[in-house]
Design a protein around this nucleic acid. Structure first.
Lengths: 217, 217
DNA sequence: TATGGTATAGGGCAATTCCTGATTTTAGTC
DNA sequence: GACTAAAATCAGGAATTGCCCTATACCATA
């Protein structure tokens, strides 16, 4: 019985590479590709894949938010995070979002295969480095309950925050999300009052700390 | 006559993906893989490949430095940069280092093939986005003087940039510096055109990278 | 002295933000 | 199902800010 896989990564050549590596595997079929979280969401509802290989850092709707929304829509699917980052905000964020596995992009392809098999059998897959991160996080969390910053914001608000921190103007964001400029303004203001941050630079720094955007160009 | 290719990328799965995509191509043979610039250097002297596909951002010896050293050792090889970044410091850095092509990782695999062919015929290959970057850079910097980042800005401009990145409004900056709002605006615009950055979030990120401001609150 | 970079600043129009208020959807609970 | 709270959507109008162009004075230094 074949495993239906959806690939979600903002880099086309990465998608092509993965597709090519997977296509020779007997019981695996790549049913689609998405270049961002939003496309992934709609493709999942349409294609109902068994597994989504999900990049974590993507412009627009990122991997964490996309994963949450995907699993809300269609719980049967399993998400494997495939990321360049081993930072704890990414790892814990993805698992909170409901991912079943987390791999670093410098893993071997065989490891991805192992992860796909494990996850498809309803197990969880962790690569060595990632389990270290989780363990450390767990241990350091026993004493004081760590507050969940970023959880005060709604999904839409996070999305808008990310787009802001990526340098998009209000108008551009409105176009990208197919909503009115006025709505984007409202979201921004809501975010600002929730976070008690009232300038774009501070908002940007917050987004960087939370992993919504990165420092590289 | 076959083209001998060396792949250099710090992400193993990327290397495997590329190798797999290339292995079906008739006149191309992947002679080796390197996971960092240093390995690439020694492999080039040993294997003498026609082409090196070089990731730009790598830990340790990065793509730019590696390219310089490789071409010093063995001029016959051609380097194609394959990067996630279209930032001008990467693009211009790679070309100054002597690369013959620059591709973004979200290009199609076919584009990489085109690049390999072009570069192997001693041509230069530029993808659309990259040529835009180079043209802008050329136009804005006709003398071609190499600048250290942050050194292009005047003292006053850095001061304004820092105040911006700390979340001060234009009006507030004017008050703090005892100058007119108009002057602050002029400084900001000068900074933006010098850095080729036109949004406050991106400016903030630049300031963080340059150490003008920090991430903490 | 002629050139170029720096620092300063205004005018005018376009764009954005801020404040207030309102409707519709969605989610959770009794 | 009804009730409620939160989330998501949008608008009008005032206030603010940004953007583009232009301009002057002050230094270096070639």
């Amino acid at each position: 019985m074949e495993i239906r896989v959806l690939i979600c990564d903002d880099h086309k050549i990465m998608r092509e590479g993965l597709r090519n590596l997977l296509k020779d595997k007997a019981n695996i079929v790549v049913v689609g590709e998405a270049e961002n979280g939003r496309d992934a969401l709609s493709l999942v509802t349409k294609l109902k894949p068994d597994i989504v290989i999900m990049d974590v850092a993507m412009p627009g709707l990122n991997g964490m938010e996309a994963t949450k929304m995907i699993l809300r829509e269609y719980q049967e699917t399993r998400v494997i995070a495939l990321s360049m980052h081993s930072g704890k905000q990414f790892v814990t964020g993805m698992f909170r979002a409901g991912a079943s596995g987390y791999l670093l992009k410098d893993c071997a392809f065989d490891e991805l295969m192992d992860a796909i098999k494990a996850v498809n059998s309803k197990h969880t897959y962790l690569s060595r480095e990632i389990s270290d991160v989780l363990v450390r996080e767990f241990v350091s969390n026993i004493d004081g309950g760590v507050e969940e910053p970023g959880e005060v914001l709604s999904t839409r608000e996070k999305e808008v925050l990310q787009l802001i921190s990526e340098g998009n103007s209000t108008k551009l964001i409105a176009e990208k999300l197919f909503i009115s400029v006025k709505t984007v303004e409202t979201h921004r203001q809501k975010v600002m009052q929730k976070l008690n941050i009232f300038t774009i630079p501070e908002l940007t720094k917050y987004a960087i700390r939370m992993g919504f955007t990165s420092l590289d160009e």
